[in-house]
């Protein structure tokens, strides 16, 4: 008996096969099912009568979806650029051997430990004109102070950007700081020998040499953009009007509130396609690097 077990030894392929089966069924299976649903006229309950790409046509004539996509692009660009810039600046400051570095690192990383819902609520209170920052400034005598972006349809999106940057900058800081700590000391010596000013050293020598680190940050932030849902719910609920709608919220709304399974599935599939399109350059460059 024992010899039979010994002969079988450890079979990693069986263990891994079980794992892959779960992934295939629940992960890729769900994707396939969602795609099938997007080709049907399903509403509250699934029907399996294929009607082709009708739902996609409907989706791209839907004003709310188009606004959602445009919002995501604007939000995504500002958020990624802003978070990278801010996070890298913090990392550089921390890298300059400031005093109490670990204290500052903790302070700036802390927002990441706060759930996005709590972040959204806090910022909603803070930016609410009637009892937040604006009310505070007015109460201490600055009567003309106005900061009502949260309630203005053309500006509300930017309050989301501000809150998200606050939330994620610490993460970028920590990742970039780890990259900076890995920089060879000889490189810094060479920079001093050549008399390169510090800002040019970072912008032209150090950061370009850290491309994989920064690419990882961008990918992380992109996934935040595409699945962005909880912050919007907590902060603006998509309003005022539809001014801060986003694709993920659109899909959830149509799945559950408006019971339009077909359209919501089409929206989900479009988000998947978008993710793949955005990630393709990253995977391509990683693949090329290895071969």
């Amino acid at each position: 008996m024992t010899s039979w077990i010994n002969r079988q030894a450890f079979r990693p392929d069986i263990t891994v096969a079980a794992f892959f089966a779960v992934i295939a069924l629940f992960f890729y299976g769900s994707i396939v099912w969602t795609f099938v649903m997007s080709l049907t006229r399903s509403t509250l309950v699934p029907t399996y009568e294929i009607v082709g790409f009708d739902q996609y046509v409907k989706l791209f004539t839907n004003q709310r979806w188009l606004v959602s996509c445009l919002n995501m692009v604007i939000f995504g660009l500002l958020y990624i650029v802003g978070t990278l810039a801010f996070g890298m600046l913090l990392a550089v400051l921390a890298d300059r051997r400031i005093k109490a570095e670990s204290l500052f690192r903790t302070i700036f990383l802390y927002p990441l430990a706060v759930s996005l819902v709590v972040t959204g609520l806090s910022w909603r209170w803070l930016l609410d004109p009637s009892n937040g920052l604006q009310a505070l400034m007015r109460s201490i005598g600055w009567e003309a102070f106005t900061f009502d972006w949260l309630t203005r349809p053309d500006r509300a999106l930017y309050t989301l950007v501000i809150a998200s940057i606050w939330h994620s900058a610490g993460l970028v800081m920590v990742i970039v700081l780890a990259g900076l700590r890995g920089i060879d000391n000889d490189l810094w010596k060479a920079i001093r020998m050549e008399g390169i000013p510090l800002w040019r050293a970072y912008l032209q020598v150090i950061f370009p040499g850290m491309r994989p680190v920064i690419a990882s940050c961008v990918v992380l932030l992109m996934s935040e953009v595409i699945r962005g849902y909880d912050l919007i719910i907590a902060m603006t609920k998509g309003g005022p009007g539809i001014s801060t709608e986003m694709p993920a919220k659109f899909a959830v709304d149509f799945y559950f509130a408006r019971v339009n399974l077909g359209l919501a599935s089409a929206a989900s599939i479009m988000m998947l396609v978008l993710s793949l399109v955005l990630l393709a350059p990253y995977f391509y460059s990683e693949f090329r690097r290895r071969t």
């Binding site: 060879d184 490189l187 010596k189 060479a190 050549e194 000013p197 040019r200 020598v205 370009p208 040499g209």
Partner: peptide, 25 residues
């Protein structure tokens, strides 16, 4: 001028730019 054990070349620049960057500065 100094030559380092780990070479300390500027990683994202071509060889030409590695040579010229200091003079540019």
């Amino acid at each position: 001028a100094m030559v380092f054990q780990s070479y300390a070349l500027f990683p994202a620049m071509t060889v030409r730019r590695n040579l010229s960057f200091g003079m540019e500065i």
